[in-house]
Design a protein around this nucleic acid. Structure first.
Lengths: 214, 214
DNA sequence: ACCTGAACACCGTTCAAGT
DNA sequence: ACCTGAACACCGTTCAAGT
């Protein structure tokens, strides 16, 4: 399995930031955020925990890098979209896909974003769309805020609910326990699109109104 | 200071859930969420950490109770509002006030909500408004989702930024360091109202559209 | 009903030193 | 450039036992 088969137990593993981030992402996907500890990560990399602090100044810095890695696909998203309202829907859905692609990603990204350790994923893209379709970039910013916070909050809730279900929270009768207070048979997907449509409708309305007042 | 002055060192402190929650809220306000540990809380209550597990089954259960305590004022909010769109703005602002009233409250409530350990604060209220003004309660639900997630996400970001500023994150020149990627002189208040207005506009638009299609 | 005592199995982080 | 060794100062939780 080693690159050099005649060094069966080399001096030690050698790593770089990208490799550490990838290993962390692996733990996240397979064990979840609570088990993504510096000590477990070190163990996977066959290294002492203190070694990680050569690559990252703190756990939060490491988590920020993992967040950026998770949001990476969005950087390649197309901004060739017909309107700001359409962009809100499309890019919002793509952000959601990035988050649902990795376990506990919404919670992780939420805190990195709040701490200001990752760039907001939608603001730049929506700004570009606004410029192309000649919409005010104040509105692009407002839209980005609305969509980003909603998508992350919604995905956070959804991923926690999935996890709870997967844990098999069963009452004594063997039926799954009630999931607190939510719509019966809560359809995350339909729920999600409805809200994005609501926001898109708001964007369209503001554009009509703004055309006169600005 | 004691209720019975002739029991200078009584057997031990005696507590109930409400008292424990209040003490926890005190730590939150004065030291912040990272310092709200079971051990510190026990210390404040002059009790061993294990005693807390008589009142709450876990730390998360305790934190959920604190979250509910923080959201309590909203329960007394008026639903006598002219429209669903107006309710979105007014109740959204009131939710924000509840969160900004306590240090790190947005982060705390965000996770309790995601875990399904607290009732969503706006869904019931907006449902009542919808019923009164005869709006579809599917739209009330959608609106609640949009507003709740946005307000919490936005407040989370804002509280973290304040905390970073308060820490005096200064570069060598003594000027405050850049706060990552945000609007220069980011006005949280104006930002916030703009997004609520956007959502309210979306609600109004959906109502007009729904009047024909539903 | 409410708490103590003692233990278990963990954390993130620092820093001198090694190669 | 990248890692070890050893330590520091913590965590949440369980459970038998006390009053």
């Amino acid at each position: 399995m080693n690159a050099s088969p005649d060094a069966p137990e080399g001096p030690r593993a050698r790593h770089n930031r990208a490799g550490v981030v990838e290993a962390a992402l692996g733990i996240l996907d397979q064990q979840g955020l609570p088990d993504l500890t510096m000590r477990r990560l070190a163990q996977v990399l066959e290294v002492r925990p203190s070694a990680l602090y050569w690559h990252f100044t703190s756990k939060q810095a490491l988590l920020a890098a993992v967040s950026a890695r998770i949001l990476e696909p969005l950087q390649r998203a197309s901004t060739d979209l017909p309107s700001l309202a359409a962009a809100a829907s499309v890019l919002g859905s793509q952000l959601r896909e990035c988050l649902l692609a990795h376990r506990d990603a919404a919670e992780l990204v939420s805190s990195s974003l709040a701490l200001g350790l990752v760039d907001p994923p939608l603001h730049g893209l929506l700004g570009m769309v606004a410029e192309r379709v000649d919409a005010p970039d104040r509105l692009a910013h407002t839209t980005a805020e609305a969509v980003t916070h909603f998508v992350i909050g919604h995905a956070f809730h959804e991923q926690q609910r999935r996890h709870a279900e997967a844990l098999g929270v069963l009452d004594s009768s063997g039926r799954p326990a009630a999931t607190t207070a939510s719509t019966p048979a809560d359809d995350g997907e339909a729920d999600f699109t409805q809200v994005l449509d609501l926001i898109a409708a708001g964007v369209a309305a503001q554009l009509r109104h703004g055309a006169r007042t600005l």
